[in-house]
Simulated scan of single mutants.
Amino acid sequence: MRLRGTDGADPIAVQAALPAALDGTAPLALGFEPGPDDVVPEGTAAVIATSGSTGVPKRVVLSAAALRASAAATAERIGSGRWTLALSAGYVAGLQVLVRAHLAGTEPALLEGRFAPGAFVAATRGLGAGPRYTSLVPAQLATLVDAADEREVRAALASYDAVLIGGQALPPVLRERAAEVGARIVRTYGSSETAGGCVYDGAPLDGVRAEAVDCEIRLTGPMLADGYLGDPGLTARAFAVDADGVRWYRTGDAGTVADGRVAVIGRLDNVIVSGGINVSLDRVERAVRSVPGLEGAVVVAVDDERWGQGSAIVAAGPEAEGEALLAAARDRVAAEVGTVARPSRILMLAEVPLLTSGKPDRRAIAALANAR
């Protein structure tokens, strides 16, 4: 089957094309323009180009059955109702908002223009009666929480039965602040390869199984992607079949699975060697984000003349506050991770570069940190 190119930045176009995609007659290409050789298996609903925030973008093939299974499992866990689309429909989290609304028989509320508190409030007003849901990335949640002194913003955020948060780690401080203003947060874990979040607040959705093999989290269930378009080698490496014939997705994330609960530590490949010692930058970033004023900070690798590699903090805020924040972050990292893991520098920016998905653009951020 041939793909139909659709502008993922236009939610109305994606919504209009969704019924034919979900019945398998007109699969969508999201995030890229399909070529004449881009042919997909019968039953494909969409091929999504990943953000490529830390590596080469991949094109993930998702069947209609996988998207439907994911949406059904979400409804079973949190309920079914009306959805607000605050993310790009060209990414799996945004696409799934439209899928869930479609399968629930409800009309999604769409934000006008760029994400902002006023736009979120206006979209929320248009939802009507019934259970309400939305999906955000942590940066969007932080924007709303920061504006929650305004009564309308606070009321809108608190009106949702569940606010799904995914795309990156949710700082505990931000979750606490969100709860204080009445937001019902559900932390999700998953990826395009799992048709979106498939683990909610550490518990796999119905039909999903998780295990840790050599410290790597693996996932299986009916929402797994078919693989990567045009890359059978990468598909074989990422999707493994065990001795019982069960197909698993190798996430590349380090973590544990105990008593049915999934705990993610960070990316297996997001490690530097500083003075001969391995340092997980994900652990460093979690510690840094627990410092007031650095909740949205990003930690990246930088060259270090003495130790070979080190890390830098990149955050939004006044440059004058940088040294005090760096000192506080170094103390926190030393206590929680170890002295050798302390970041060596901080870069304060007016805005931290983001991808259209709302995630930090880590490649651009690392380039800025190393250039300074």
Rank of each mutant, 00 (worst) to 15 (best):
V241E: 14
V241R: 11
V241A: 09
D242Y: 05
A243C: 06
A243L: 10
A243W: 08
A243Q: 12
D244I: 00
D244T: 04
D244E: 15
R247T: 15
R247K: 11
W248F: 07
W248D: 10
Y249R: 01
Y249P: 02
R250A: 12
R250S: 08
T251K: 11
G252Q: 04
G252P: 01
D253G: 06
D253F: 10
A254Q: 13
A254L: 14
A254N: 10
A254E: 15
A254W: 07
T256N: 11
V257G: 09
V257C: 11
A258T: 15
A258C: 13
A258P: 06
D259N: 15
G260S: 10
G260V: 12
R261A: 15
A263I: 09
I265V: 14
I265T: 13
D269G: 07
D269C: 09
N270P: 14
V271S: 08
V271I: 15
I272G: 04
I272D: 04
I272E: 03
V273Y: 02
V273M: 06
S274K: 03
S274R: 14
G275C: 08
G275W: 03
G275Y: 04
I277K: 14
I277H: 14
V279R: 00
L281H: 03
L281M: 13
L281V: 02
D282M: 01
R283S: 12
E285K: 07
E285C: 10
E285W: 03
R286D: 02
R286L: 01
A287I: 10
A287V: 10
A287H: 04
R289V: 11
R289H: 08
V291P: 00
G293D: 06
E295G: 10
G296L: 13
G296D: 14
V299Q: 00
V299C: 04
V299D: 00
V300G: 05
V300N: 04
A301H: 02
A301Q: 09
V302I: 15
V302W: 01
D304F: 03
E305F: 09
R306N: 06
W307C: 07
G308S: 08
G308Q: 10
G308I: 09
Q309W: 07
Q309L: 05
G310F: 05
S311E: 00
A312M: 10
I313K: 13
V314S: 06
A316M: 09
A316C: 12
A316E: 15
G317V: 15
P318G: 10
E319A: 15
E319K: 14
E319Y: 09
A320H: 14
E321Y: 06
E321D: 15
E321V: 15
G322N: 11
G322H: 08
G322T: 12
L325M: 08
L326Q: 03
A328I: 06
A329E: 06
R330G: 00
R330H: 03
R330C: 02
R330M: 05
D331R: 12
D331F: 01
D331Y: 00
V333A: 00
E336L: 13
V337K: 01
G338S: 08
V340L: 13
V340I: 15
A341P: 04
P343S: 06
S344F: 01
S344A: 09
R345K: 09
R345W: 00
I346D: 00
L347E: 04
L347Y: 06
